[in-house]
């Protein structure tokens, strides 16, 4: 994977564009393995074509790294086979939990920012990395309320990344969403992140649902303040891949191309000629 590269989430809703549209040429794609493991027939053929054409990253949904539940070894075995089959080097997941009391919930619930949760997540990250025989990249998630927090979000994330030795997927839009929802300074938050551990970046749009709440929908275009925060973030870190997420309300492909071009302009401004160290 080239470091100064701009990718986009591969979604069934606009799958044909990835194969047939010669003007649409992301540097890489990202998809959720949960949506493709065990899939045969038409969609497997499409995925095979896409992964033959583009380098790919996998971004998981249901690992539930923050759960009290045991890790789902049946799914992890399937996941490992799938990652090997498609030569996936980067596998990322959300710093959240999606399963409790033996029930999957299919959304990213906020882990209490507590010391025992840090230790628990660190332990599970190590187990997952050992089992999958590849690094696990952990993403900061958007959240709409803290739950029984005993430390700040930045302490929680930084401690987990530092203690586990994992890499981080920094979602710049999530930083913006959380800063708006919980009244903190976006740039100070970025500065507090373990920036030398960033494996790649996420960018996305969101939906403001009230005067004091933004929901991280991935259903709108990226807004200017998030581009500004992205510019700031990129100025602080070494070149890494950047992924545009668009999951709902899919626009004309040209609009996605324009968004990717704008991201590329920013990364090129800061990273052109920069050597990784």
């Amino acid at each position: 994977m080239k470091t100064n590269s701009i990718g986009i989430g591969f979604r069934k809703d606009f799958a044909d564009e990835f194969i047939d549209n010669s003007n649409f040429s992301p540097d890489f794609v990202e998809f959720a393995p949960e949506n493709w493991v065990d899939m045969g027939g038409y969609w497997k053929k499409i995925l095979d074509k896409v992964t033959e054409k583009y380098p790919a990253i996998c971004h998981g949904l249901s690992l539930s790294i923050g759960s009290a539940e045991d890790l789902d070894m049946v799914f992890l075995k399937k996941l490992k086979k799938f990652l090997d089959q498609y030569n996936i080097e980067i596998y990322s997941e959300h710093l959240s939990y999606t399963k409790a009391e033996n029930a999957h919930l299919f959304d990213l619930l906020p882990i209490p920012f507590r010391e025992d949760a840090v230790k628990h997540v660190v332990n599970r990250i190590k187990k997952v990395q050992d089992f999958l025989e590849r690094p696990l990249v952990i993403e900061n998630v958007s959240y709409y309320t803290p739950v029984a927090a005993e430390m700040s979000e930045e302490e929680f994330i930084t401690n987990i990344v530092n203690e586990s030795g994992c890499k981080m997927l920094l979602d710049v839009n999530n930083v913006y969403v959380n800063a708006f929802n919980h009244n903190y300074d976006t740039k100070a938050f970025i500065d507090s992140m373990p920036l030398d551990k960033i494996a790649y970046l996420h960018m996305a749009g969101h939906t403001k649902v009230s005067d004091d709440l933004i929901i991280d929908t991935h259903g709108q275009a990226i807004i200017d303040p998030v581009y500004d925060l992205f510019d700031y973030t990129v100025s602080k870190i070494n070149p890494v891949p950047v992924l545009l997420e668009r999951d709902f309300n899919i626009p004309e492909t040209n609009e996605l191309i324009t968004e990717m071009s704008r991201l590329k302009e920013i990364t090129t401004k800061h990273w052109e000629g920069v050597k990784c160290f």
Binding site: A68, Y97, A100, L105, D107, L109, P110, R114, V147
Partner: peptide
């Protein structure tokens, strides 16, 4: 290991999300 208190909090959040029935959950924004 998560402390029992943390597990209980996580479970309360999940139960509320499943049922919609209010749970007593500490430290959440109204």
């Amino acid at each position: 290991m998560l402390l029992n208190e943390t597990i209980d909090i996580q479970n309360r959040v999940a139960r509320y999300c499943k049922s919609g029935i209010e749970e007593d959950i500490p430290g959440v924004t109204k």
